[in-house]
Design a protein around this nucleic acid. Structure first.
Lengths: 356, 356
DNA sequence: TGGCTTATGTAGATCGGTCTACGTTTTTAC
DNA sequence: GTAAAAACGTAGACCGATCTACATAAGCCA
């Protein structure tokens, strides 16, 4: 029961094949200067010994063929779709993908990213990281970096994001076409300062621009909350407490949308008859028929694979930053409907329900 | 805009502090033989230069302080809870956690695990891996390994699993207490051969044992399908096609449960009035009020942190395998209710509905 | 056949740490 | 006061690959 049946190294292979270590290394890398005969002999020895190169030792000088994906919250099912796209593309180019999570704030995020750099990962994909742009620039200067889910451009990193301005417009247009006028928006506000490149900021801007475009300046209503289940639920109580409650809400993200739906369900407020709800992201659960949330799809798989492609380009030498925007599409499901007749839901009624 | 502002190495620190590299290394590791004076001086130099040790180089001889977590499918939200637990415990012991996913079958799984070993990760947590036990033994012999979500015991690895036998019993007992007798069970069958240690096998066994215990031998009905949304939906059609359809189903996993609920929703079969549904895992979406799936909770966070703890023990030298079972608890929500009066749902009715 | 280019293979430094062996100095013990 | 033990530092091999020089053999052309 020997714990470590000592793994074959490049020296073992060299000895077994009767050649130098350098020669084996050349075969390994497909480098110039190897005859077919030698190549065959070395390869024979390699699988005779069950040899596998140590990615670690390899990384000391050359590449590690490892990409790091940093994510804040794995339980958000939209990011798992992004990751799927990243992996597909990276895998086809011979890179391994490792994922690191950090959901305890900026310090932990920084630590995780440093851990990836310490392990000499060839490049990093940062999915919706927090912190100032400047921090991202610093990382981009150290190692090839692509930021996914924040708008660009950056100086020393590439960005891939959904066109959140257009996404918000799709939502507002849809609701307006259904007759809604009092449309609220949930904007994420966390512990960290909001940067202009973060999706919550751009989506809020897009919402305001679209409202203005429809002449609904007076109805603009941005509610600051957390983009998660609880944040969505809390926002419902705020909205119903308005003198003239809205008839629809653009929740900014599906996670908050679920919270909104849950709270309405508890309060027995019928959706979409009394209130229309729109999410953003098209997370997996949004398509469950019991939920069937109208939302904006960001084609996460494509965004992920695009990020991978850009990252590999960058690893292979490109230095000019690239900043891309992916066009989102609206997924109309059953949480949006025509505006309620009259002035919409009677506030008194709703408050009674809420207190009953 | 220099791409690589060359990072400080241990030699730079040594030179700056006017000591040997070995001395710096000792300080780094907290090894024996360092005076307080020297320690202070070296540490001063370290942060004067902004020094960070290369985890890569470190791993060449000593430990890499990295744990690998292998998972088949990140989009299953239950695994993200497990990961949360793993990270919490590992982090407090100074280990970094990297996650690797592979959902394209045994070959890709093997490749991912080898990639982790190639990077000299100190230990591996495998979450619900497929393949024969023997394959796991092989991995356990190469590197410290804990298998999460498969039953033990293993020879050369530890296991942490939910007591699936007890979990199935909880479900059947609950349904029987509500008057159900015709209770079906969905068993996962994929491309790979089912091993006795896999949860789908143990849950099915537990279901059968509990049915027998209640004298319901004649009603045992195991339906083989995939444990995902589609598999659950498909199973509904099979169940409704029975001469005497069941009145309740133990879906084996929440993911399949969601599929079952979706299909019932499409068919306008009321749950739980006409049919009771129970999941397994207590995934995040199960608690959404629109879904509110009765399920079995496995306290994933605790399982994850236990796995971490066992892994670190193993890394630090333990060799006797440990195999643990965590007690599950039933979460009664609103997808289960009393058995329908009479002989339950009329099959004709359901078929009509299905075809209408 | 001599001179030059191209193909093939090897030696050995290098990456950034860890760790063993050993030489000094300082303490402790009697 | 002196031997033994403990404390402190350093040199240098080592981990397993890559990569730059360089040496040697082979091919080509006039």
């Amino acid at each position: 029961m020997n714990k470590h049946p000592k793994r074959a190294t490049i020296s073992d292979v060299a000895e077994h094949a009767g050649v130098s270590r350098a020669a084996v290394s050349k075969v390994l890398r497909g480098a110039y200067g190897v005859s077919d005969v030698m190549k065959a002999r070395v390869e024979a020895s390699m699988d005779a010994l069950g040899y596998r190169p140590s990615a670690l030792a390899r990384g000391m000088r050359g590449r590690s063929f490892t990409l790091g994906v940093f994510v804040v919250d794995l339980s958000n099912t939209f990011v798992t779709v992004l990751i799927e796209g990243i992996r597909a593309e990276a895998g086809s180019r011979g890179y391994q993908v490792f994922i690191g999570e950090a959901n305890m704030g900026l310090a932990q995020q920084k630590q995780m990213i440093e851990a990836m750099i310490d392990r000499k990962m060839d490049g990093l994909v940062l999915i919706a990281p927090f912190g100032p742009d400047e921090e991202l620039e610093k990382i981009g200067r150290i190692t090839p970096t692509v930021v996914l889910g924040r708008h660009g451009p950056g100086q020393d990193y590439d960005t891939v994001a959904s066109d959140d301005l257009a996404g918000s417009a799709l939502i507002v247009d849809h609701l307006v076409s259904l007759g809604h006028r009092r449309i609220s928006h949930l904007k994420h506000v966390g512990k960290e300062k909001n940067e202009a490149t973060m999706p919550q900021v751009v989506r809020a801007d897009g919402y305001i621009q679209a409202m203005v475009r429809h002449g609904l300046d007076a109805e603009v209503d941005v509610i600051e909350t957390k983009w998660n289940h609880q944040g969505g639920a809390d926002a419902v109580d705020l909205m119903l407490d308005r003198d003239a409650p809205p008839t629809a809400v653009h929740t900014g993200t599906d996670m908050a949308g679920f919270g909104v739906l849950s709270r309405f369900h508890e309060l027995s407020v019928p959706v979409p008859e009394a209130f229309s709800v729109v999410g953003y992201d098209n997370a997996l659960a949004a398509s469950l028929p019991q939920i069937s949330l109208t939302t904006v799809d960001q084609s996460g798989f494509e965004m992920g694979s695009l990020a991978s492609r850009l990252l590999v380009e960058r690893i292979e030498g490109r230095v000019e930053p690239v900043s891309t925007l992916v066009k989102p599409t609206l997924m109309v499901r059953t949480t949006t409907g025509p505006v309620p007749v009259g002035s919409g839901v009677k506030p008194e009624l709703l408050r009674n329900v809420a207190q009953g």
